[in-house]
Simulated scan of single mutants.
Amino acid sequence: MQYLLLIYRSDAEYGRMNADDRKALSAEYAVYTQSIIQSGHFKAGDGLQPVSTATTVRVRDGKTLTTDGPFAETREQLGGYYLVDAKDLDTALGLAARIPGAKTGSIEVRPVMIYDNPR
């Protein structure tokens, strides 16, 4: 089954990190990513630009409305994701617990919906 591991972190705290700390964090993510590639769990994953670059889209009464910034103000923002293939939720939770961002932020684990597409 596929799970999306959503990585939430504070953009403000990330912005306060010095270059050496960012480099160290990047190295931790590289090691983690390589480990889940080698284990066969990795399907996709990427970091996201800061929430200040986001645009939120809504359609109301047939009109498309856009707003600069995130959908909601929160202490933690979506900073990246991994799409993994895991045999069960416990395996997915174990993978999520090893993500470097879990030490300072949070990881939301969500099963991917499987659509029955009859032809």
Rank of each mutant, 00 (worst) to 15 (best):
D68Y: 08
R75M: 10
V112T: 06
L83V: 05
R58N: 04
T55W: 07
D85M: 06
P70V: 02
P50Q: 07
M113C: 14
E73Q: 10
A72Q: 11
I7P: 03
R60G: 00
Y115Q: 12
A102P: 05
D61A: 01
P111S: 13
L5P: 00
G69H: 05
L6F: 14
T67Q: 10
A24F: 08
R119P: 09
D68R: 14
R16A: 13
G80D: 04
Q2Y: 14
V51P: 02
D20N: 14
R22P: 06
D11Y: 08
A97T: 06
D21K: 15
G45R: 11
R75V: 05
A92H: 11
A54R: 11
G45A: 06
S10V: 01
R75C: 08
E28W: 09
L95W: 03
V59G: 05
Q38L: 02
R110N: 06
I37L: 07
A86L: 07
R98T: 01
L83E: 00
T55A: 11
Y14I: 13
A92M: 01
R98N: 13
A19M: 15
I99V: 08
L65Y: 10
E76R: 11
G79C: 04
A24L: 09
Y8C: 03
S39A: 10
R16E: 07
V31T: 13
D85A: 10
L48Q: 04
D61W: 01
D20K: 15
A30F: 12
G101I: 01
T64F: 11
P100K: 11
R58Q: 07
R75I: 01
K87G: 12
G80Q: 02
R58T: 04
K43N: 09
Q34Y: 05
Q38C: 02
G101R: 07
D88M: 08
R16I: 00
E108V: 01
P50E: 07
M17Y: 15
H41I: 01
D46R: 14
K43A: 10
Y81T: 01
A97P: 07
V112Q: 10
E13C: 14
Y14S: 14
G47W: 08
E108D: 11
Y8F: 12
G69K: 09
Y14V: 12
T64A: 12
Y3C: 00
R60M: 09
G94V: 00
R9I: 04
A24Y: 08
A44E: 04
D21M: 14
N117P: 03
D90A: 14
T74I: 00
D90H: 12
A24I: 06
S106Q: 13
E76M: 05
L95Y: 03
F42E: 02
Y29C: 05
P50H: 13
G47M: 05
A96V: 00
Q2R: 15
A102S: 14
S26I: 00
Y29L: 02
S10G: 11
A30C: 12
D90K: 14
G62K: 00
E108T: 06
T56K: 08
S35Q: 06
R75W: 07
D88A: 03
G94S: 10
L6D: 06
D61C: 03
L5V: 00
K87C: 04
R98P: 03
G15F: 09
D61E: 00
Y32T: 00
P70I: 00
T66S: 11
L5R: 10
Y8G: 03
Y14A: 15
N18Y: 08
D21Y: 05
I36M: 12
